[in-house]
């Protein structure tokens, strides 16, 4: 008997039954097709942007409001200058064609070990926890989120939602199933592994800056 069969047999033996009948299976499948909605954290803030920013900043992230996508390069350049980061970045093509200042080197490929700055487009922002949701795809390389020391994320306000669950609704509406990778990111990388004292930049980005667009 394969390990799979052994385990399924043991599970059913433990539960004191054979395989579920069709009716029971249909009921469970229906639970997946129309997931029950559970209790959530109350998010009654009138100003979701303020809540998002407050929560994100509580975990050492930083935010900035910009008016249009065209403002992204200048905001990134200013940030790079303030931290003395060289004018070079990996940028997902999901952000479209941006007019970068002269002297900037922009790469759309996967992040390599020496990349110091990444600029990405968030798929959603979640006001409840002040988190962003990144999806993987050819236009949104996942390495951009984790390899660079500084990560700048553009979050269009129309994509700021209240709860995690709002993301699932949007994801199901998009009808593509789950992408290969999805990341809720809620601030810079951190560790408490040395004497339970928080240090930033354990492995992922040391700095995270969200440009709230709109």
């Amino acid at each position: 008997m394969s390990s799979r069969d052994t385990i399924f047999k043991a599970i059913r033996q433990g539960l004191g039954r054979g395989p579920l009948d069709d009716a029971a299976r249909a009921k469970l499948d229906a639970r997946i097709a129309e997931p029950p909605q559970h209790i959530r954290a109350t998010v009654d803030d009138a100003d979701l942007v303020a809540r998002f920013a407050q929560r994100f900043e509580s975990r050492s992230g930083t935010t900035e409001r910009i008016a249009s996508l065209a403002d992204v390069p200048a905001a990134v350049a200013a940030l790079a200058e303030s931290y003395a980061i060289a004018p070079s970045a990996v940028v997902g093509t999901a952000l479209g064609e941006l007019a970068w200042p002269e002297g900037w080197q922009i790469d759309h490929g996967a992040a390599t070990i020496d990349v110091m700055l990444g600029v990405s487009l968030a798929w959603r922002g979640i006001a409840e926890t002040g988190s962003i949701l990144m999806l993987s795809g050819p236009e949104r390389p996942i390495t951009h989120n984790f390899v660079p020391e500084t990560h700048v994320v553009v979050l269009p306000v129309e994509h700021l939602v209240r709860h995690y669950e709002d993301c699932w609704v949007a994801l199901r509406e998009a009808g593509q199933g789950a992408p290969r990778a999805m990341n809720f990111i809620s601030g810079p990388s951190r560790t408490g592994d040395v004497e339970q004292t928080i240090e930033l930049g354990a492995h992922g980005p040391r700095r995270m800056h969200v440009l709230i667009l709109g």
């Binding site: 929560r55 509580s58 975990r59 490929g109 996967a110 992040a111 926890t129 988190s131 993987s136 795809g137 050819p138 390389p141 996942i142 390495t143 199933g177 789950a178 992408p179 290969r180 990778a181 999805m182 990341n183 809720f184 990111i185 809620s186 601030g187 810079p188 990388s189 951190r190 992922g204």
Partner: peptide, 22 residues
């Protein structure tokens, strides 16, 4: 005691056609 950890990561299968990493 955190409201959320920094990263919650979902992985679904290997890299897809067109993906440049993963």
């Amino acid at each position: 005691g955190q409201e959320t950890e920094s990263y919650t990561t979902f992985s679904t299968g290997p890299r897809r056609p067109g993906d440049i990493d993963g």
